[in-house]
Design a protein around this nucleic acid. Structure first.
Lengths: 112, 112
DNA sequence: TTATAATTCAACCATATGGTTGAACGTGGA
DNA sequence: TCCACGTTCAACCATATGGTTGAATTATAA
């Protein structure tokens, strides 16, 4: 298990915070794509898409393998689990707060 | 059900992409805090923390109620479900096994 | 009323982000 | 070899971000 700190989570959530990058993730989740294939649908330069791919790579959400002159990109889903754990942790804390409130209400009703 | 578009997701993921803001979320998930209480543990100005609170508010992750001169902040967990759906969607598209993630997300969605 | 406390607002600064363009790099095909 | 192709790199630009400080706002307390 790789040690992943707060800075890694920063990168993962930052990478997810742009619609172009989320779209890229959806496409490489289905199958590998080259940079050119990824860029084609967007109304922006290939260089801009290449930068978005680098942001995803820095977050370790995207893995690249060079075959010849083409770079094939595929999803690395592991960091998604780290992100999901953050959301699950917050949900768990929130539920605990609800539980505490319900316990308090139960106590109040017992007294009457 | 409020219509939430891509721009809203941008805000949510951006809000989650800073350790100070994730820490604030964890604390307000347990109980309400004032801005001053939220700022105290951090080695930065209260104004800076106030800005972080505003980022969370823009993402609708934080609700504020003014009581007297104090502003009480509590978690609004609804946008976390939108974020979780993105992760779940990616996991579903990915054509290899990802049971652990799906279990985590199921836990989140059980709430509400 | 006056002073103080909790918070925001406004201005400013350094750095990051998201985009562009043009040049360079590495590979494959003629 | 030479050239075209896929991609990155470098420079640049406008705007956003994350922090600061000092002034303004609003509510409580004396």
């Amino acid at each position: 298990m790789v040690e992943r700190g707060s800075a890694h989570l920063d990168d993962v959530f930052h990478a997810l915070a742009h619609p172009v990058r989320r779209d890229i993730l959806r496409r490489i989740a289905r199958r590998e794509h080259t940079i050119g294939e990824l860029a084609r649908p967007f109304d922006m330069s290939l260089e801009a898409v290449s930068k978005h791919v680098q942001v995803l790579e820095r977050a370790h959400l995207l893995e690249r393998s060079r075959r010849g002159r083409e770079h094939y990109c595929r999803l690395d889903p592991a960091p998604l689990q780290d992100a999901a754990k953050v959301l699950a942790g917050l949900a768990r804390l929130w539920n605990r707060r609800l539980d505490a409130l319900e316990a308090l209400l139960a106590d109040i009703q017992k007294e009457n």
